[in-house]
Nucleic acid binder design. Structure first.
Length: 943
RNA sequence: GCCGCUGUGGCGAAAUGGCAGACGCAGCAGAUUUAAAAUCUGCUGGGGCGUAAAGUCCCGUGUGGGUUCGAGUCCCACCAGCGGUACCA
């Protein structure tokens, strides 16, 4: 009677685990610890996606496996619940964000529990918990209280910041301002990505192609006073400390490229008349290179100081502060028109279209400090205000962009680097007709002529540094992190702005006393953005907004933190989630950190991981954590695509067009020949066949059909809902299938038939042991308490061996195949030793815990198998007494022969030479050499 | 353009430089059944020779080269698909 029925088994065991707190993790590890972490989800209204359980199952397998290996396992789960979508949803449905967020969290929790993950739910947290964001605010105050000492390469308390004498003598206000300029959390007037559609500013990372990542709204650049975090100060360490981490090289490279460290020089070009140049040079020679760019000079950043002699013009960004002061009256109108147009363009518009470079002449000239020649200063939007100094020396002969611009505006091109090799276009390069960006030897370059590129760089930096004209410099593509948002649903900043008697800000700030944290969100009737860059918290009651301390009145900071804030440190809080005195108890932190395995989607490869590493380093510098890096091993799971779809293309009259005969047009795909629009039509698998490398219609093999799995999306209608998979096949089948699909890191298409296949396997496991004719979970009579036969032992031990080794290397798909082989084998055995059955159940438990617990119970055990020792194997048992080895001639298999498994090289070679078929093949030939790989094969090299 | 990843049967895939295609899906055949479902058993890369079976040979891991006794695996060049990125001086 009882067939395998996950619908009853699964809730039963989930309840058992809950009631018995089976997965409760002790405060401190006992023996070896393992911290296995998932990237916690954003609890959207749509619920869990099938992509989520992929990583979660992988970590769950590791967690369960580790428990059975006797390790203490920390395996927590929580929610990254602040952020835009919750707020958008709240506005749309007119529910307070906290209410909708809590509903979503409840639904996510239900779904996660339904999948049987072995989380310690007592440690569950949400970034929106007041008790949690209290500590997020606390960490912000640490950032606010820290400056970066570049000499020591370390964040230090602001109180230790040396104050220069001139600042000191300017008074307390100046000292305060000086400190504010050096804090890791500082306010700055910055050009920000203002998104009117969302009513907030966004970080550079949240803007994709000039549109907001969330919602795809257009983004403009406007100047606004904002909170920034000085992540660039940690740029070198963020690159350097990547090296020892157990992350994939590609993720490391991605992070390193994102930080984008480059070295070169800053060089000053004076904007003066040629006659004044020698005076300028003389005055510079007396003093060092000025810290701040002096007025009347354009400071550029270049990675190729060796090409300085080839700088034939300059370009400054349209937003550059010098634009106003250097432009000549004749050019004023043209410059204004150009800059205005650039300001209103989003980045998207600037780079869109034909990408032709545009610019305008300022009328001004600067002096090339090495040639003494006057060169024109242009304005062009291909120079970005946010990188380097916002100004460049243009070396058209050796930079593609400058070359293109110089050609467009007929500016001079002078070759100053001779390529190392004699290429065909050498003459054209020397003549300035072709751009060459590679290394070579300096030419037309005065004192550095003949030096190779590296020597030329250091030589010119050295000489110009002595003359006070240049200095070595480092730059990062990474910008400081824009940290404030004009939205309601985020952590409030624990900062107060001092007001004078008239209620106007004095410019002084005060950190909220740590003892009075958290600063909770005020209740707002209306939390909608209003299309102006003013935060909704400004609409809070005065009782929230204004604070008086020691007789001084303050107004609260009304910006909120971005969604990333909460996810920057949650892995620390899981270690000690209820601690009321500190973010985490230092002894526990030391015992549990670092995270031993961190699994999540590759979309967080740069942002989340970079931000979290940055915060962690600040906490490390300030003595709150014991190690500089939080995530020892990182694995990115691949994307799960929808089911494979076949798509054909039809003209309006219904006739088919081959998918190879199409081209793109503005209105969509068209037939290349007739130029008519085609319509994409879904074709059933049964109507398609494969010919050669491509799929075609069965009815007309000339018509090629596209075969492709697409990203799951509501619009395409190919989203798989975990709830329905669980109700149809069970959670164990879903878990098993997600692992069986292929390697964790690969992108792979969903297949409902595949789910059915693993469900079939679980049915077979069930029938291997359970009498489905009986009333209860009775074992079959063939399950007997007997010693396995040698052959059974071989299967048993080799299954244990392979499953164990593969899980240890995070190969989750192949152990399933091994267990299938085990089941296929024992299904044919008329006597099935109980010991072997028990071992299988334990091996299966990390993958399919519910059925495993049920079978474990049926095998006569009363306790959960969670802490049962992992089965062990004896490698000697996995071997047969005789093995079949291939006999090759010149690398081709010509025969096979049985040899004893321990056969020596000599025995194997003899077995090969004596083989009848080998004799036939050797007729008339001589063996030059015999290659024997013990236990593997024999190869004869013959002539 | 640049960077990264991936190319193996009808499909998902497996393979410390050593018998390519384990395992699963789909398909085919058989057993069971009044019948079907379910289940169990077997076959299943392509092509020759062979009536067939047994057997046997050739080809085959995107393409072209290379290293090696031996290459899906290592090296070079290229092609295709997917993902990321976009004037970072």
């Amino acid at each position: 009677m009882p067939r395998y029925n996950p619908a009853t088994i699964e809730p039963k065991w989930q309840n058992y685990w809950d009631v018995n707190k089976t997965f409760q993790c002790p405060e401190m590890p006992r023996g070896e610890k393992v911290y296995v972490l998932d990237m916690f989800p954003y609890p959207s209204g749509a619920g869990l996606h099938v992509g989520h359980p992929e990583g979660y199952t992988a970590t769950d397998i590791v967690a369960r496996f580790s428990r059975m290996k006797g390790k203490t396992v920390l395996h927590p789960m929580g929610y990254d619940a602040f952020g835009l979508p919750a707020e958008e949803y709240a506005i749309r449905t007119n529910t307070p964000p906290r209410v909708s967020t809590e509903n979503n969290i409840a639904n996510f929790t239900r779904q996660l529990k339904m999948l049987g993950f072995s989380y310690d739910w007592d440690r569950c947290l949400s970034t929106t918990d007041v008790d949690y964001f209290k500590w997020t605010q606390w960490i912000f105050l640490e950032l606010y209280d820290t400056w970066f000492d570049f000499e020591q390469q370390k964040g230090r308390p602001i109180a230790e910041l040396p104050i220069p004498a001139d600042v000191q003598s300017a008074g307390a206000f100046a000292v305060e301002a000086y400190r504010d300029r050096h804090r890791l959390a500082y306010q700055d007037e910055a050009l920000v990505n203002w998104c009117p559609g969302l009513g907030t500013v966004l970080a550079n990372e949240e803007v994709i192609d000039g549109k907001s990542e969330r919602g795809n709204h257009p983004v403009q650049r406007i100047p606004l006073r904002q909170w920034m975090l000085r992540i660039t100060a940690y740029g070198d360490r963020l690159i350097h400390d990547l090296e020892p981490l157990d992350w994939s090289p590609s993720i490391k490279k991605l992070q390193s490229d994102w930080i984008g460290r480059s070295t070169g020089a800053e060089v000053d070009f004076p904007v003066i008349a040629s006659e004044q140049f020698s005076d300028w040079k003389a005055s510079r020679a007396k003093s060092a290179f000025p810290e701040q760019q002096p007025s009347g000079t354009i400071r550029v950043y270049t990675t190729r100081p060796d090409t300085l002699y080839g700088a034939t013009y300059m370009v400054i960004a349209p937003e550059h502060p010098l634009v106003k002061s250097i432009v000549t009256s004749e050019q004023a109108a043209a410059v204004k028109a150009y800059c205005d147009a650039a300001a209103f363009k989003s980045d998207r518009d600037r780079t869109d279209g034909d990408k032709k470079k545009t610019g305008v002449f300022t009328g001004a000239h600067a002096i090339n400090p090495v040639t003494g020649k006057a060169i024109p200063v242009w304005i062009a939007d291909y120079v970005l205000i946010g990188y380097g100094t916002g100004a460049i020396m243009a070396v058209p002969a050796h930079d593609d962009r400058d070359f293109e611009f110089a050609q467009a505006y007929k500016l001079p091109i002078v070759c100053v680097v001779k390529p190392e090799s004699n290429s065909e276009v050498l003459d054209a390069i020397l003549a300035g007709q072709v751009c060459y960006t590679g290394p070579g030897n300096a030419m037309n370059s005065g004192a550095i002529d003949g030096l190779d590129t590296d020597q030329a760089k250091s030589s010119i930096i050295e000489s110009l540094s002595q003359q006070g004209i240049a200095k070595e410099a480092v730059n990062y593509k990474l910008r400081d992190w824009l940290f404030s948002r004009q939205r309601f649903w985020g952590e409030p900043f624990p900062i107060l702005h001092e007001l004078d008697k008239d209620g106007n800000p004095t410019g002084r700030k005060r950190a909220v006393d740590q003892a009075t944290l958290p600063v909770d969100l005020p209740h707002l009737e209306d939390f909608k953005p209003h299309g102006r860059p003013e935060p909704p918290l400004a609409k809070a009651d005065d009782s929230w907004l204004y604070v008086t301390i020691d007789g001084v009145r303050y107004r609260r900071e009304t910006n909120t933190m971005p969604q990333w804030a909460g996810s920057c440190w949650y892995y620390l809080r899981f270690i000690d989630p209820k601690n009321a005195k500190a973010i985490v108890d230092p002894a526990k932190e030391k015992a549990w950190m670092p995270v031993d395995l961190y699994i999540g989607g590759a979309e967080h490869a740069v942002l989340h991981l970079l931000y979290a590493r940055f915060w962690h380093k600040v906490l490390y510098d300030r003595g709150h954590v014991s190690q500089p890096e939080p995530f020892q091993k990182l694995v990115n799971q691949g994307m799960i695509l929808g089911e494979v779809e076949y798509t054909g293309y039809q003209l309006s009259d219904g006739s088919w067009v081959s998918s190879t005969a199409l081209e793109k047009s503005d209105n969509g795909l068209i037939d290349r020949v007739s130029k008519q629009l085609v319509e994409a039509v879904k074709v059933e698998e049964s109507e398609v066949t494969k010919v050669g490398d491509s799929f075609v219609l069965i009815s007309n093999e000339k018509i090629r059909i596209d075969s492709r799995a697409h990203k799951m999306s509501k619009a395409r209608g190919n989203v798989i809902n975990p709830d329905s998979v669980v109700s149809e096949y069970g959670a164990d089948s879903l878990r098993l299938y997600e692992m069986f699909m292929g390697p964790l890191e690969a992108t792979k298409p969903w297949s409902t038939k595949g789910v059915n296949g693993v469900r079939n396997f679980l049915d077979r496991v069930w029938r291997l042991m359970i009498d489905t004719q009986g009333d209860g979970n009775d074992l079959l009579d063939c399950i007997q308490d007997v010693e396995p036969t040698p052959e059974q032992n071989r299967v048993l031990h080799s299954t244990i061996m392979h499953v164990t080794k593969d899980i240890e290397t995070l190969g989750f798909n192949t152990p399933i195949a091994r267990m299938m082989e085990f089941v296929n084998f024992f299904t044919k055995e008329s006597v099935r030793p109980k010991r072997a059955m028990e071992a299988l159940v334990l091996l299966l438990a990390p993958y399919a815990p519910h059925i495993a617990e049920e079978l474990w119970q049926a095998l006569g055990n009363s306790q959960s198998l969670t802490y049962e020792p992992w089965p062990t194997y004896d490698e000697a048992m996995t071997r047969t007494s005789e093995i079949e080895i291939p006999l090759q001639i010149n690398g081709k298999v010509r025969a096979k022969v049985m040899v004893p498994s321990g056969a020596t090289v000599e025995q194997m070679e003899a077995a090969g030479r004596n083989h009848e078929k080998i004799h036939e093949w050797l007729e008339g030939k001589a063996i030059v050499k015999a290659i024997v790989i013990p236990g593997r094969m024999v190869n004869f090299v013959v002539k």
